[in-house]
């Protein structure tokens, strides 16, 4: 049953990284509750283009919750209030007629605003480059069952591997800490035999990069896991601490 609602949007507009930003208010009428949040922004942008105004810049790509490109701090929550969904999976049926929706970019020192709602999340890529991989000798494809891995371990590694690197964890954290992301990336590899070999070096390199890029110290408030669209568990952070401290103590 298609229904439509009228909403008011307060959107952060900022010309470029250096300019001072401000909130702009927009009224939208007859927004179908079947549309997604990003489609609603598309409608707004078309309207702005028709009015010869600058459309709002926001990140998006797959629009199905797998690429990690979309962002947006919606009414005080990264990816909106709904749990376990990304912004692109958020639908307008979750809003009521007459709602005022405040949309802000991720705010964290390590994620500078590029324009409007777009931020530079290159910091996460740099952390990955510091060690979020395994070094393999390419050769013949190994037999799938050559290295047995228990179901529990495989599940835990897979759960950690669902992290899409969206940055909501650091955006939600009052300390601007990237620990949930880094711990997911360290865990998905450290849990498996292929990744274990380089686990100590990896944990040290990724944490060093994370600190260098200006992310904060984790105080275990848990806002990251509460807001993470992929429900990455806080126990990954304990694992990262363990991997890192053991590696340092061995040095």
């Amino acid at each position: 049953m298609a229904k439509s609602i009228n909403i008011t949007l307060k959107v952060w507009r900022q010309k470029d990284a250096k300019s001072k930003g401000h909130f702009e208010t927009y009224h939208l009428e007859n927004i179908s509750t079947d549309s997604s949040f990003l489609e609603m922004l598309d409608i707004l942008n078309e309207k702005l283009v028709d009015e010869h105004k600058e459309p709002i810049a926001f990140d998006h790509d797959c629009r199905e919750g797998i690429c990690g490109m979309c962002s947006l701090y919606i009414n005080g929550h990264p990816h909106g209030y709904e749990s376990e969904v990304t912004t692109c999976q958020l639908h307008m049926r979750k809003f009521k007629d007459g709602d005022v929706i405040t949309v802000e970019p991720w705010r964290s020192r390590a994620f500078p605003v590029i324009r409007d709602l777009m931020v530079d999340r290159g910091a996460y890529d740099k952390i990955m480059q510091a060690g979020g991989y395994i070094s393999v000798n390419t050769g013949g494809t190994p037999d799938a069952n050559a290295i047995p891995i228990s179901k529990e371990i495989a599940d835990e590694a897979m759960d950690a591997a669902t992290c899409i690197g969206c940055g909501a964890c650091a955006a939600a954290c009052k300390n601007g800490s990237a620990m949930l992301f880094v711990s997911a990336k360290v865990s998905q590899l450290a849990l498996l035999p292929q990744g274990k070999l380089e686990a100590a070096r990896r944990a040290k390199a990724m944490v060093a990069k994370m600190d260098e890029l200006g992310f904060g110290n984790c105080t275990n408030t848990g806002a990251c896991a509460a807001e993470c669209p992929k429900s990455i568990s806080l126990s990954n952070i304990a694992r990262l601490n363990r991997e890192f401290l053991c590696a340092k103590l061995k040095d």
Partner: peptide, 25 residues
């Protein structure tokens, strides 16, 4: 350090997720 890591701009709207303990913040 943590306040600095948050950056100069603060969110206009913040809504504490219910799983976050008040004490922790």
């Amino acid at each position: 350090q943590n306040r600095a890591a948050r950056g100069a701009d603060r969110y206009a709207v913040v809504d504490k997720p219910k799983d976050v303990e008040w004490a922790s913040q």
